[in-house]
């Protein structure tokens, strides 16, 4: 059963720091208000598009966009890229945005560290992405009911047409040298998919660093520093009415399937 923020146990709320509660309240307020949502979406599409285009458009090698054009219009879209850079979700979403038809909501769940445990993180989130880095993922076990409520909010949004979200099935960033090496899946991704049944699109992204300055330098190198973005066909989820979205095994299985799709794309994209 889906969990609302209001229903998260008090012990989870009290486990959050004062700053975490405050930043989450601001972000929730923005996403609950129709004006806030509209402003955030407009701002994020303008600024993220401008920034990604400036830093990467000359370097992009994009494959598989035909899969995006064929997605059903009656539900949201969840991009499932590999996770090697802080920027891979934004680049994948920027490219997808031009191919998915109508889109009026953007979400990129993000770990709470920095983004939600400091006011500086919230300021950057709001000013640079229109607070699209939402909901926060709180990792410590006592706070995870709040995380689940956030994920369930995202699932509710993904049931609506016009929602575009990006979430890493791996949960954390791969730090190895092999761009094709993927980490094991985590449960959060599967929970969202099982609750929302969105169009889940595996994406392989390669060629991005973790530094904005490095990306600016590479932008000057143009096509000598390519960024590969390969979209795959959406996962076939089936009916799934008998599957419990809170079951850990079912969640992990969904994550594994998405990562298998990414691994296939990695082979074809290199």
């Amino acid at each position: 059963m889906a969990l609302r923020f209001e229903d998260a146990p008090a012990r989870s709320w009290t486990a959050l720091s004062y700053v975490e509660r405050a930043t989450l309240a601001v972000a929730r307020g923005l996403h609950r208000s129709p004006h806030g949502r509209r402003w955030g979406f407009t701002w994020s599409t303008l600024l993220v598009r401008m920034l990604v285009d400036a830093l990467s458009s000359e370097r992009l090698v994009v494959l598989g966009t035909e899969h995006l054009a064929r997605l059903p219009a009656d539900r949201g879209i969840l991009l499932a890229p590999n996770h090697r850079s802080f920027f891979d979700l934004f680049v994948a979403a920027r490219v997808a945005y031009d191919h998915v038809g109508s889109c009026n909501r953007l979400y990129f769940p993000v770990r709470s560290r920095f983004w939600y445990d400091s006011f500086a993180g919230l300021a950057v989130n709001v000013l640079a992405t229109g607070c699209s880095m939402y909901p926060p993922i709180f990792r410590p076990p006592p706070k995870r009911s709040v995380t689940r409520a956030g994920l369930d909010f995202l699932a509710a949004e993904l049931r609506k047409p016009g929602t575009l979200a990006g979430m890493h099935p791996e949960g954390t960033r791969s730090r190895g040298t092999d761009p094709c090496a993927l980490l094991p899946p985590e449960g959060s991704f599967g929970r969202v998919v099982l609750l929302a049944r969105p169009s889940v699109v595996p994406v392989f992204v390669d060629g991005l660093s973790n530094s904005l300055f490095a990306e600016a330098r590479r932008a000057l190198a143009g096509k000598n520093a390519p960024i590969r973005v390969v979209f795959g066909p959406p996962l076939t989820l089936g009916d799934g009415s008998a599957v419990d979205p809170s079951g850990l095994r079912a969640q992990i299985e969904i994550g594994r399937r998405a990562l298998e799709g990414v691994a296939e794309l990695a082979k074809s994209g290199l």
Partner: peptide
Amino acid sequence: EDKFGITVTDEQADL
């Protein structure tokens, strides 16, 4: 789960 034939939810796993 495999060894004991039980089903664990994400909420139980967190504990």
